[in-house]
């Protein structure tokens, strides 16, 4: 398993390089220019000069190589310089966003906290709700609990967040005044009052997102559990006189987890990617909002950097899922 993991990690390097190239070409090819959000009152000659100052007029491969160098050398070394006070890359240009004309990693640093707290919590809540619901729904198939669970899950999935988000705001922020409709990113949790404020401003986005996440995961858990509950080994285990708890939670669950692990692992990089619509509806301004804003503004360095980090996370978490397969089902071997 260890050699497998190491081999996969080594193989991931060329894969990621290829992915980064494809993303770069794709974003470059996409119609639109970094000037799309500049008002029409700025004359064309000035626009061309602005594009030149951003370096966006260089050939695509020059920009790609520059980005590679900045991402893999300048940025890490800049962190080293900050930590140890050294001067390895002093004066060298970091990855500069077209929109903000500042370093991309500064923006990412500003955005990570709210993305992790809001989207991360929502995902965690979603998983914690979904798995037990999925298990119990399968165990008591077609009971009222299962029916209700199915109904809510499918409703949660089929009604888009651009609708549920606004609906929650109308009900809980406008009519009832329980929660704010706008997320305050400057809020620092220092005492009980600010903690309460933080919980209140997180409540609505977390509710909307966790409903959406829980829907998908609970469906996969339920169907996989159902599949396994009918297997012979369950009958055998019961025949041996094992308790229902042991049978369901130890034997069936373990064998049912493969699709669940896959779905969860696919979702975790999404936490970093943020939830574009929900972030926008509640003005959370996390990574998702940064990404969509950068895409609209054709801010190639920002899009490229965010997407690439996202790609790294996808590769890593898919690898983790593959390793977990082996742990869950020792018959799966990769060597």
């Amino acid at each position: 398993m260890l050699t497998y993991a190491l081999r996969r990690l080594l193989l991931a390097i060329p894969t990621l390089l290829l992915i980064s190239l494809v993303i770069f070409l794709l974003v470059d090819l996409a119609p639109g220019s970094p000037m799309s959000e500049i008002p029409l009152t700025v004359p064309p000659e000035v626009r061309l000069k602005m594009i030149a100052a951003m370096g966006a007029d260089q050939p695509v491969f020059v920009r790609y190589v520059l980005w590679l160098r900045q991402f893999f050398w300048v940025e890490p070394m800049h962190q080293v310089d900050l930590l140890f006070g050294s001067h390895i890359v002093e004066g060298q240009q970091r990855i500069i966003s077209y929109q903000t004309r500042g370093p991309v990693f500064t923006v990412i640093g500003e955005r990570i906290p709210q993305t992790l707290t809001v989207i991360g919590t929502a995902y965690l809540v979603g998983v914690l709700i979904a798995v037990p619901i999925g298990i119990y729904s399968a165990y008591r198939q077609y009971s009222w609990f299962d029916q209700l669970g199915t109904f809510i899950a499918m409703l949660g999935y089929s009604v888009p967040t651009f609708f549920t988000g606004v609906l929650m705001i109308v009900i809980f922020a406008i009519k009832l005044h329980w929660f704010p409709s706008i997320y305050n990113t400057s809020l620092k949790v220092t005492d009980w009052a600010s903690l309460l404020a933080q919980i209140r401003q997180m409540a609505l986005p977390v509710l909307v997102l966790s409903l959406f996440n829980a829907a998908e995961i609970s469906r996969y858990t339920r169907s996989s559990m159902l599949e396994n509950l009918g297997q012979d080994y369950v009958r055998t285990a019961r025949a041996k006189g094992m308790g229902e708890g042991t049978v369901v939670l130890k034997h069936v669950l373990r064998n049912s987890l493969i699709p669940v692990v896959t779905v969860i692992a696919l979702g975790i990089p999404g936490i970093f990617g943020g939830a574009i619509i929900t972030e926008n509806v509640f003005k959370v301004n996390g990574i998702g909002a940064a990404l969509i804003g950068a895409i609209h503004a054709n801010d190639l360095p920002m899009v490229q950097t965010l997407t690439f980090i996202f790609a790294v996370l996808i590769v890593v978490f898919n690898l983790i899922a593959d390793i977990l397969y082996g742990v869950l089902d020792p018959r799966i071997r990769y060597d």
């Binding site: 193989l11 894969t15 290829l18 992915i19 494809v22 993303i23 794709l26 974003v27 090819l29 996409a30 119609p31 639109g32 696919l266 990089p269 990404l291 969509i292 895409i295 899009v303 997407t307 690439f308 996202f310 790609a311 996808i314 590769v315 898919n318």
Partner: peptide
């Protein structure tokens, strides 16, 4: 699976814009 990783990583919006264009 690497192809799958690639598709998972691609940003949807530019991809669609490019496809349509």
């Amino acid at each position: 699976m690497r192809l799958t990783d690639l598709f998972l990583a691609l940003p949807l919006l530019p991809l669609l814009l490019v496809l349509m264009m």
